[in-house]
Design a protein around this nucleic acid. Structure first.
Lengths: 252, 252
DNA sequence: AGAAGGACCAGTGGTCCGTA
DNA sequence: AGAAGGACCAGTGGTCCGTA
């Protein structure tokens, strides 16, 4: 089993490898213009605790073009983070050091492709075959060079992707509204819950069934918070309908 | 969340509770006559390493009737194991300190009932709902007094239960044959693999699909060894059919 | 020797919180 | 302040091996 060797490899030099095969796989967004962050020449900047918020002004400004390698520096490259997301309209490409929401949703499609590859390998080998995007899939994605995919990020925005899958019109409208109001990504993300709960309400509150009924969504775990919101909302809906003498009175 | 308190409880005094609600739930076996092992009055017998196989003769003989509690003894009851299984015919009740195979299969039905209860509780609470017999279900079974159910045992015989579900005739015939030959449980258990692999061969080798298509079997994880046997057999079947010039030639 | 099951272990789902 | 993601943690699937 070569997993460990490959895992170790994935810790190094990943960011060397620009990912451009996804050009044509692009969802609705601007084809091929999504930026790929390349390891910059920045020195290590650990251990500067205590001097927060000082000299941070142009701190983030000079690291676009990987201005030639400084390999003499022990420690080598500083690992680069992905640019943060901003709220973009459908089809809009984020400019500057930002990523747009079409790119975000595209990451979910990429994970699906990695899952399919993992499934094919498992079937070939007669091993257990995952039906969801598991740790194994994230590991595989890293190994395959998609270092910009990671579990916390994907889990964080699953419900946003769910809305995109289940009601693209509503999702698009929400994006336009939040962009217009100048809201940040966090606010948009929060706002994605409400229309999903409304969808669940219309379909008997079974959010798991709703996810599972959609082929692209079925591979994602239902986020805990979405599940909780559906449950809470179902109960209060039931309570108010029982107060108002509705027909579907519940026993608690 | 009261899980921990309940878990702690399940460590104590479980064996106090005879399980007789399963009388009528009995599968094909002798209704209500399956023994329930009750904690006997045996003293602790730990820490006697080094003197193996000495004075073990009538060691296992006096603990049927829980001959009155010795609670003054610190440490209390010695936990009692279930009687070992023997190969029985369908409908045959094991006699002596043995359990029969109808009882074994009944344990799988009980686990299914515990799973259903866990699922109902989860749905009520809007929590994640298991589709398989998980650790959580085994914990619940213990908590509910079914101390004789445990994960290693259930996993050990899953494929035997699978054969019982998928081809009861074949399963019954195998039991009769192995009983007649005086084979032990281990030999019978080993023999259950072969007809399962034959079933898989007839259905395109997808053992997961076969399990999932059967409502009582779908809740059990496919045992690793069964999966491996199907895989190995598929490959050698493919190899020989490709040698013999068969129509479904495979590419490796 | 044959068998039951406590208990361990590698890798999981889940997400916090130190980081930039 | 807002956001990305390394890394941790409780509880899982899997089954070995000390026990009877």
């Amino acid at each position: 089993d070569t997993t460990n060797a490959l895992d170790a490899l994935s810790q190094e030099g990943l960011s060397e490898e620009p990912v451009q095969q996804e050009k044509e796989a692009a969802g609705s967004g601007g084809g091929g213009t999504w930026e790929v962050v390349v390891a910059g020449g920045r020195k290590k900047q650990r251990c500067r605790k205590g001097q927060k918020k000082v000299v941070e002004v142009d701190h983030d400004d000079e690291l676009e073009g990987a201005e030639d390698d400084e390999n003499g520096d022990i420690g080598g490259y500083e690992r680069q983070r992905e640019h943060p997301f901003i709220v973009t309209e459908p089809g809009e490409v984020a400019r500057g050091k930002k990523n747009g929401l079409d790119y975000l949703f595209h990451l979910y499609e990429q994970c699906r492709e990695f899952l399919i590859q993992v499934q094919n390998i498992a079937k070939e080998r007669g091993e257990k075959c995952p039906t969801k995007v598991t740790n194994q899939v994230f590991r595989y994605a890293k190994k395959a060079g998609a270092s910009y995919i990671n579990k916390p990020k994907m889990r964080h925005y699953v419900h946003c992707y769910a809305l995109h899958c289940l009601d693209e019109e509503a999702s698009n409208a929400l994006r336009r509204a939040f962009k217009e109001r100048g809201e940040n990504v966090g606010a948009w993300r929060q706002a994605c819950y409400k229309p999903l709960v409304a969808i669940a309400a219309r379909q008997g509150w079974d959010i798991d069934a709703i996810f599972n009924a959609h082929p692209r969504l079925a591979i994602w775990y239902v986020p805990t918070k979405l599940r909780q919101l559906c449950h809470a909302e179902r109960n209060s809906a039931a309570a108010s309908s029982s107060v108002s003498g509705g027909p579907d009175h519940m026993a608690f």
